[in-house]
Structure formats: structure tokens, C-alpha cells
Design a protein around this nucleic acid. Structure first.
Length: 579
RNA sequence: GUGCCCGUAGCUCAGUAGGAUAGAGCACCAGAUUCCUAAUCUGGGGGCCGUGAGUUCGAAUCUCGCCGGGCACGCCA
């Protein structure tokens, strides 16, 4: 990035380094220096608290930091003028320079925004990973969209991403699944058999059973062999994973890799992992304390293989082995993370539902014992989504298996609304998803509001194209002038130019929701300006009698479209040319 | 009892490396369309940022206590 924001940022950092090197100031935490580039109070295009921070750190007498830094900032080529108010440095940028930045965006549209903080580092993002015991439903969707959009952000900022889905196909619930399917299958042949309480009651298993019955007829009915058991388990997983893939595809999510728990088990990674843990004294035979939960009356102390996670980030040690010597879920999951570790990523990111928050510290401990790097493994959590219909919470129960599925939601609200809303609220905040509101076509609905702004902009540009008064080449530059641009438009332009910084923040902090907030602000500025054209003709985009003014306006409008299109791509929604 | 997350306008939410007078949308009230898409816009009222202390030039933001809500706390995956 080579724009006014990053140049000024570098300026402050270098200036500070110089002060310290020359023993003019003592060291400060650079993180405290802020650069406000969408200054709301309009005291400057860019504002900084630099003076406030540095003032007390000046260690030599008679050094007039304020006039010194003012002089140096003024000498930056694109700085128009500066003022200091209440300790804040307010900098105004030459408008000519801002205009040229817009031109740069159009000249390099394909590479915009050009952010390379990732340095092609390889990151593995594991998300969704819903158990293959039923279709994807509402509890998985937020994590799915969050992971997908985060991936897009990281890719746009220079990281290489592998999207991964972990399939738990080895646990006892898979046995239950296979058994549930078998019962449904038998029912098709009028065998008198009921689904038990702890089995899967969902109708989808009847459909799968039907497919199986069509293929195999009644050949398994009286078969209780191991072969039949495996067959039903594998068949149900295979079909359900296909179903999950199809469902995710509905909202534009595709994974690079599916990893299967059963393969991890086959590879014997647990043994290898334990050797490493042994070396580090992190594994031992021991007895856990009685758990603190209410319903732990039947608990009794037993000796088992434990992970010394309390030595790292956890508040207690965790079991690798059940008393019957079989591995716990945590043991297999540890092996899976070891597998990811062996694949040489620079970083692992996991996205989990809030119900797994308590699991983070043990897995963090495990991965840390391999990587010795606290930043290597990162778990992001999504809080629950409540569905609202007719102003009431939609009730769902695990027992009844009546979760609203992804496919249902897709059918009722569509891909764009689903993706936009799932990612527009901070992932750690619980949110309500109002099924009625998200399909409204008015400003209640921010998806629509933003897309409408895009469509309006497109319609103007298309019209300008027809009239041949569009900025299309460097040679058009001579027609443009800063004098044609009103103050309201500069607000929009400054905001547009801040887009890459917004993306940078989203990338660094893993916060997709900031994009939608930004878009809504920008769309609002745009709609306001549009309506000003209703009252004041000179503010309309297209004025055939003033071609140069029109070209100048269309220039920033083209950039507006570039930014919106880019952001829409990241969120994964349509950019409609007309509505 | 312990850990993590959350508490901002009547409602849904922004405000994120501590920064200037805390912002949007909805709802409510009053207005704008011979005109590039009114599916839009303009104006108005509405706040002890859960609460009490602390840190400092400065706190919605950081620390601690309390109150309220959510999630998780066997060898379930």
C-alpha cells in the first residue's frame, strides 16, 4: 500500500524512532499512537494523537516538539495544511492527491486492494465440522459463513488458506446413526421396530433408507453381522456428507479438504503424539478430581491416562483414555490436530460454536505442546443464533430433531440475506435472526440497502457510458478537476480510500462484521448524495451540458462500484447491476 | 462453586491497539418525487454506555468488586 494513510503511518513511526535514537524522547508503546483516517468530526482528513502521547516522554529541555513535527509533516508532498487542536494533529490532504488515488484504483482495478500482509503464509481454517449424523442446520450456519468470509478476507490480504472440514466418523454416535438407519430400513419392509430415544429420529434417515432399499432390496433384513453394521454406518456417512456438501454449496461454501477421524485413527497418530508428550512430561497415569457439575452423583475415581493440560492453559488435566482403555474424543481430536501440525501450516485457525468454549483451553494446551508458539493455534467462537418468526423465538429441540435446516433457511430467505446477516454481527455476540425482516425489500434490510446503492450507481454509470462521458483512460485525466467535487463528495471519497485499511483491520483482528458496517455507512452517504441531486440539479451525477464535471463525478462513482463489488465478493453476495 | 462470552436509545446492533460533542437502522412525529431507480432522502425527540471503585491529561473501551443474561464444566462427541 502506498497511499496517504500508510505513508503518514510510516512517517510517525520513523519520526518516533528518530526521537528515541537521538535521545530526545524515551521509548513509548507504538500501539498507543492512533491514526484516525475517517475522522467524524471533520477537523482533519487524518487525525493523530501523536503529540498527546509523546509530550510527556520528551527528555530534553527546550525541545519544541509541536513546531518540529508540524514542519516535517508540512514537507510531505501531499499534505495541504495541518492544525493542532487540543493536542490532536489534524492533517488535510491535497485534494489533487486524493483525486489521483481514485485514478490509481481504476488503473489497477484488477489488483485492488493491494494488501500483502499475509506474505503468502499458509493458514488452515477448520470450520463447520458438523457431525455427519444429519443435515446442516441453523446452529452450524453462522460458523460456516463466518469461516468462509474470514477466508475471503485473509486471501484478499495475502494469505494462502486451506479450508478444512473434520468429519467425526469414528465415535459411538456413528454406531447409533448406523443403527437408526437400519431401523428405518427395516420399517420399509414392515418390520415392527421403533426408533429409541437416544437414536436419530429425523426424517432424512427415511429417505436414505429408501435409497438403500432400492439398491439392495431386503438383503440386510435379518443380518446382524459386523459387515452389515459397517455397511450401514459407512453408507449413512457417505450420503450425509454428500448432503452436507450440497447444502453448503447452496450458500456458496466449498471446502478444500475433508479430513476423516477414521483415517486419523488408522494412521496411528496417537502413538506418535504420545511419544512427544512423554518426552515433555505431559502425559501420565492418574485420577481426576470429582467434577463440579450437579449431576455427577454416580462419579467414582478411576485411574486413567491423562494429559497434563493444567501445566499449560487449562485449569485441570484431561483424559486421553476411558476406563475401558478406548480413546476419548479428545485423544482422537488431539491426533487430528497433530496431523494438521505435521502438514506444516504457519497457523491453524478453528471456528467453534460457543458450546465448545470450555474445550478451547485443553486443545490450546495440546497444540502448544507441539508448536511452542502461543500464536500458532487460534480458536474463534460463534455465539448462538436465535431464529425469530412473527416476533417469536422459533423453538427447536435436539430430542425431536426439528432443527431448522440450512436448506429450509436458504429456501425462505436466499443466499444473500443469509450470508450477509450471519456475518454482520460480531461473532462473539449472540444474535437474533428475524426471518421476516431479512426478506423485506426496504431499508430495514441492510443487504437490500447496500445492493440497491450498487444498482443505482451501476445504472448511472451505464447511462454515462452510453453518453460516452465516462473516465476510461489516463488521457481522460485532463478533463478532471478537484473544483468539480463538493464537500459531501469528498466525504464519500475519503471513506472509499479508507477501504483497504478497513480490510486490513478485518484481516488482523479476524473481524468480518466490520465490512458490513462500513458498507452501510458508505451506502447511506451515497443515497444521501443521490437525493441531493433531486433538490439541486448541479449535484446530479450526469449533466450533459457539463461533461467534465460529469466525468469527475463518474470517476469516484466508478471507484465506489469497485469497492462495493470487492466487498460483496468477500461477503459472498451478488452485486446486481439493476434491481 | 469454577472458567469463558455478553450487558450501549423502547427494539436490533456499531463503536477493537484508550482520544475530541457516544453513532446507525427500526419504531414514533413532521416533511421531500414534473428530475440519473422515492425499494430513497431530510428534520425532530429519545442515553447514569448494567453498577461501584481504580488506573490517567482522557475510559463505553483497561483493572478489580458486585448485579443481570448466555455457554461450558466426567471416561459425550
Amino acid at each position: 500500500m502506498n497511499d496517504h494513510i500508510s505513508i503518514l503511518n510510516n512517517f510517525f513511526m520513523n519520526y518516533l524512532d528518530n526521537l528515541i535514537e537521538n535521545n530526545i524522547a524515551s521509548d513509548i508503546n507504538k500501539k498507543n499512537i492512533s491514526l484516525d483516517y475517517i475522522s467524524k468530526n471533520k477537523k482533519g482528513h487524518i487525525s493523530s494523537n501523536f503529540l498527546l502521547i509523546i509530550k510527556k516522554k520528551i527528555i530534553i529541555d527546550n525541545f519544541d516538539i509541536e513546531s518540529d513535527i508540524k514542519t516535517k509533516i508540512k514537507s510531505i508532498e501531499f499534505v495541504d495544511y495541518i492544525s493542532v487542536d487540543k493536542g490532536f494533529i489534524n492533517i488535510f490532504i491535497k485534494k489533487k492527491y486524493l483525486l489521483n488515488q481514485l485514478i490509481d484504483i481504476l488503473n489497477n482495478e484488477k489488483n485492488y486492494p493491494n494488501i500483502k500482509i499475509g506474505n503468502n503464509k499458509n493458514i488452515n481454517i477448520e470450520f463447520v465440522s458438523a457431525n455427519p449424523t444429519g443435515p446442516i442446520h441453523v446452529a452450524h450456519i453462522r460458523g460456516a459463513v463466518f469461516g468462509d468470509v474470514l477466508t475471503n478476507i485473509l486471501k484478499k490480504t495475502g494469505f494462502n488458506i486451506t479450508k478444512e472440514y473434520y468429519v467425526n466418523d469414528a465415535g459411538s454416535q456413528i454406531e447409533i446413526l448406523g443403527n437408526s438407519l437400519f431401523k428405518r430400513y427395516c420399517q420399509l419392509f414392515n418390520v415392527d421396530i421403533e426408533i429409541d430415544d437416544n437414536e436419530y429420529p429425523g426424517e432424512y434417515l427415511i429417505d436414505i433408507a429408501r435409497k438403500l432399499a432400492e439398491k439392495d432390496k431386503d438383503k440386510w433384513i435379518d443380518n446382524n453381522s459386523k459387515e452389515r453394521k459397517n455397511y450401514f454406518e459407512n453408507y449413512s456417512i457417505k450420503i450425509l456428507i454428500e448432503c452436507i456438501k450440497d447444502d453448503l454449496k447452496l450458500i456458496g461454501i466449498e471446502f478444500d479438504q475433508f479430513s476423516y477421524e477414521s483415517h486419523i485413527v488408522e494412521k496411528n497418530l496417537i502413538e506418535k503424539l504420545f511419544k512427544i508428550l512423554e518426552k515433555n512430561n505431559l502425559i501420565y497415569e492418574g485420577v481426576l478430581e470429582k467434577p463440579k457439575s450437579d449431576d455427577s452423583d454416580d462419579w467414582e475415581p478411576r485411574k486413567q491416562l491423562l494429559f497434563k493440560s493444567s501445566k499449560l492453559f487449562d485449569n485441570q488435566d484431561r483424559a486421553f483414555q476411558k476406563s475401558d482403555k478406548s480413546w476419548t474424543y479428545f485423544a482422537n481430536d488431539s491426533a487430528y490436530h497433530y496431523d494438521k501440525f505435521l502438514r506444516n501450516y504457519d497457523k491453524l485457525i478453528n471456528i467453534w460454536g460457543s458450546d465448545h468454549i470450555g474445550y478451547i483451553s485443553r486443545m490450546k494446551s495440546l497444540v502448544y505442546s507441539l508448536s511452542n508458539n502461543e500464536n500458532y493455534f487460534n480458536v474463534l467462537t460463534c455465539q448462538i443464533v436465535r431464529l425469530i418468526k412473527n416476533n417469536q423465538i422459533v423453538k427447536m429441540s435436539k430430542r425431536e430433531g426439528n432443527f431448522v435446516t440450512l436448506r429450509d433457511l436458504y429456501n425462505s430467505v436466499g443466499k444473500d440475506a443469509l450470508r450477509y446477516f450471519m456475518v454482520s454481527t460480531k461473532n462473539e455476540t449472540a444474535m437474533d435472526f428475524d426471518l421476516d425482516k431479512v426478506i423485506e425489500k426496504n431499508k430495514d434490510n441492510p443487504v437490500f440497502y447496500c445492493q440497491y446503492a450498487f444498482a443505482r450507481a451501476s445504472s448511472v454509470i451505464n447511462k454515462a457510458k452510453d453518453l460516452n462521458i465516462i473516465y476510461s483512460h489516463e488521457k481522460d485525466k485532463k478533463y478532471l478537476s478537484i473544483n468539480y467535487i463538493s464537500e459531501k463528495e469528498w466525504d464519500i471519497i475519503l471513506k472509499l480510500l479508507a477501504y483497504q485499511y478497513l480490510l486490513l483491520q478485518c484481516s488482523i483482528n479476524h473481524e468480518p462484521h466490520r465490512i458490513t458496517n462500513y458498507l452501510e455507512d458508505l451506502a447511506s452517504l451515497f443515497h444521501t448524495f443521490w437525493n441531493m441531486g433531486n433538490a439541486e440539479k448541479s449535484l446530479r451525477f450526469i449533466d450533459e451540458e457539463n461533461i467534465n464535471i460529469t466525468k469527475t463525478k463518474i470517476l469516484w462513482l466508478q471507484c465506489f462500484k469497485v469497492v462495493f463489488k470487492n466487498a460483496f465478493e468477500i461477503i459472498g453476495i451478488e452485486a446486481p447491476e439493476n434491481m
